[in-house]
């Protein structure tokens, strides 16, 4: 560091916390409750286009109508695309470095028309394939969060 730079002062934001309280909404809460209590996935069907959204949401953007019909979807599905995250970064939820590497994929559950982003239990990209079948593995202790799903396990390697 140059002498000039050494004289320039910076400060850290330190241990300051800024807590928020967010709402999952009625359908989001139902989805998370089903995960937590029954290890089940639930979606919602659009009355106009028939698309099943997972997680369930109140509105279909393209149709701009209200959704009310909850439908069960599978805990199994297929990989749409994937990567293996190996760079370090700060997880804003914890303020700590996220442990790497980990498999990371966009997953289409059977019966859903939308996709979930989640972990995959594989860190060698050569062993993950687009279209590979996966199944959700749940945490023993669940709190009503997407992290109640530990990861998706590859059913074929």
């Amino acid at each position: 560091m140059s002498e000039e730079k050494k004289q320039l002062i910076t400060i850290e934001s330190g241990e300051a916390e800024q807590p928020f309280r967010w709402s999952a909404g009625t359908y989001g809460s139902r989805f998370l409750t089903e995960l937590r209590d029954h290890k089940r996935f639930v979606g919602i069907r659009c009355p106009k286009c028939g698309k099943v959204y997972v997680p369930p949401r109140r509105v279909c953007g393209p149709c701009f109508v209200e959704l009310t019909e909850l439908v069960p979807v599978s805990d199994q599905g297929e990989i749409i695309t994937y990567t293996v995250v190996s760079f370090g970064f700060v997880d804003p939820a914890t303020g700590k470095q996220k442990p790497v590497p980990y498999g990371y994929a966009v997953i289409k559950l059977d019966g859903a028309d939308t996709y979930l982003l989640h972990y995959v239990d594989e860190t060698d990209p050569a062993k993950i394939k687009v279209g590979a079948r996966v199944r959700a593995v749940f945490e023993e202790e669940r709190h009503g969060s997407m992290l109640d799903i530990k990861y998706f396990e590859l059913l074929e390697r």
Partner: peptide, 13 residues
């Protein structure tokens, strides 16, 4: 905060 943040690894990923 419910559907993306717990898993999402930003722009690079």
């Amino acid at each position: 905060p419910f559907w993306d943040r717990p898993i999402f690894a930003g722009a690079v990923a």
